Amino acid sequence: MMNRVLLTNDDGIDAPGMAVLESIASQLGYEVWVVAPEHDQSGTSHSISLHAPLRLSERGVRRYGVSGTPGDCVVMAVRHLMKDHPPTLVLSGVNRGANIGVETVFSGTVGAAMTGMLFGIRSIALSQTFSDRQAVPWETARTHAPAVIERLLRLQWTASACINVNFPDRPADETGEVVFTRQGRGIVKRIDVEHHVDPRGLSYHWLKFHREPTEDAPDSESTAIARGKIAVTPLQFERTAEHVFSSLGV
């Protein structure tokens, strides 16, 4: 049986990045399945829905929308829609915006890849950096991602880690080589709360990341993409702060 690839994201099944990812996947020679959120689920990390039902909508052949998070989508695909022949690869993205540093903790794009990792499936998150939200350089990811994915699949990495790929905010023909990086600090400085009043006079609040350019470690993903490189970072669940663990005297 042909290898199967599961596509998902956190921007929603109708997001432009999903169309880019479908174009990328079509070049890999896999049977393609799309199981993605019905609506934008950015910032949902690895969360799964334990207190609400999930509903499926069929959007075409092997194409489904899910009324839940990216993590829900992976679970629904692996344990329900594709349970007889699970995917051999999970691709999550292409996210509109970089997923670097602390943002990888909040990212639904990365969260979906890590959920795939939980099932023992090799999983890759893909994100496209931009500086102008109205002019995201999607062609950079579309052009370079197939070769990056094929290269990664030839390497000896196991499902105990997932791979986080960030494409730089450069035209495709000006993008540099692949660089293997570590997770850095990234550019998120804090999370702010904005207070507003709706037309009925009721208060509501909006959470917003505050980002600032910062100098990061030379081998970090943010440094690589700032230099126009494609940053590839292996991620895992283990988050023990070893230096603190040692200092506790245990």
Rank of each mutant, 00 (worst) to 15 (best):
L81I: 00
L81T: 02
L81H: 01
M82H: 07
K83Q: 03
K83L: 09
K83A: 15
D84G: 06
D84E: 11
H85W: 09
P86D: 00
P87I: 02
P87K: 06
P87G: 10
V90Q: 03
S92N: 04
G93I: 00
G93M: 10
G93E: 01
N95W: 02
A98D: 13
N99G: 11
G101A: 01
G101C: 11
V102R: 14
V102Y: 13
V102D: 14
E103V: 09
T104K: 10
T104V: 13
T104P: 09
T104C: 11
F106V: 09
G108D: 14
T109M: 13
V110S: 09
G111V: 00
A112E: 10
A112M: 01
M114A: 08
M114R: 14
M114E: 12
M114G: 05
G116M: 05
G116Q: 03
M117L: 11
M117N: 12
G120S: 02
R122H: 05
R122N: 01
R122I: 15
S123W: 02
S123V: 11
S123E: 07
I124N: 03
A125I: 04
L126A: 00
S127P: 07
Q128V: 06
Q128W: 01
Q128S: 03
T129M: 12
T129P: 03
F130N: 00
Q134V: 03
V136H: 01
